[in-house]
């Protein structure tokens, strides 16, 4: 192994990427873990916001619908980097103001939690639109059948609407998840130790820019490939009961 690396002139890179110091591999993996945690949290929060948002837009009163329209329009119009700066600084500032007003000390906001909130709010706007479209694509007769058989509204949503819309929503949600993983990189700007920031630190300490950014790129690529696998599986499950587009039995 070592010989092969020497031969290829990669021994130095391998040393730099070693998991334990003086190698930086451990830092990169920690950064990746942080990125994934935030992406996961933000995606989940986005789904919850999206579900409420979609239902609100479809069935809510005029005031709620207007508020949601403002939310999705503004969030989707403003560049994410700007949103992150606004939400991060305004958000932490507001929380601290509230804390001091209530007589507490300034609170130290965990980077992970802040990251999840900021990206979650962004994801929520997109998820609202994805889920709204998916709910609208559910044949109304299926929801009507649920009502006709005495299902209460929440059970109808849980047992009929959500499972039936899944096949329409998964492609859009898969995209959102990938965007979430990559948007975590934007959090580097507020000093959060996710993969991109860790990579930059490693690179600038060692001057091995090419090695580290290539390694980070490979990690992002791995996440994407793995996600593709998982979502492919989810989509097959969500499409159960629907004739395959290629025809024939599933």
């Amino acid at each position: 192994m070592t010989n092969v690396l020497e031969l290829l002139g990669l021994a130095e890179s391998a040393e730099l990427l070693a998991l334990s110091p003086p190698g930086w591999g451990g830092n990169l993996l920690r950064g990746l873990l942080n990125s994934l945690q935030i992406a996961f949290g933000a995606f989940g929060m986005g789904l919850i916001i999206g579900l409420f948002g979609a239902y609100g837009k479809l069935y809510g009163g005029p005031v709620l619908r207007d508020l949601l329209a403002i939310y999705t329009t503004v969030i989707r119009a403003v560049p994410e980097l700007v949103l992150i700066l606004i939400l991060y600084y305004v958000g932490t500032d507001l929380i601290n103001k509230a804390a001091t007003a209530m007589g507490y000390d300034r609170v130290e906001i965990s980077g992970i939690v802040a990251g999840i909130w900021v990206l979650g709010i962004v994801q929520g706007a997109y998820a609202t639109e994805v889920l709204r479209g998916a709910i609208k694509a559910v044949p109304p007769g299926q929801i009507e059948a649920a009502r006709a058989y005495g299902m209460p509204a929440f059970m109808t949503m849980r047992r009929v609407t959500i499972p039936a819309m899944m096949s329409f929503a998964t492609p859009g949600l898969a995209n959102l998840w990938l965007i979430a993983t990559k948007d975590t990189a934007l959090l580097a700007i507020v000093g959060f130790a996710e993969l991109t920031l860790e990579t930059r630190q490693a690179a600038s300490s060692t001057r091995a820019y090419f090695t580290f950014f290539l390694a980070a790129g490979a990690l992002y690529l791995l996440v994407t490939l793995f996600s593709g696998l998982i979502f492919g599986w989810i989509e097959r499950w969500a499409r159960r009961g629907q004739p395959s587009l290629k025809g024939g039995q599933p």
């Binding site: 007769g141 299926q142 059948a145 006709a148 058989y149 039936a164 899944m166 096949s167 009961g241």
Partner: peptide
């Protein structure tokens, strides 16, 4: 509603089940 049962023109079975 649980004591009435409706059969629809378009069947309206739940297609994911």
């Amino acid at each position: 509603r649980t004591r009435l049962a409706m059969v629809f023109q378009q069947f309206n079975l739940w297609t994911h089940r």
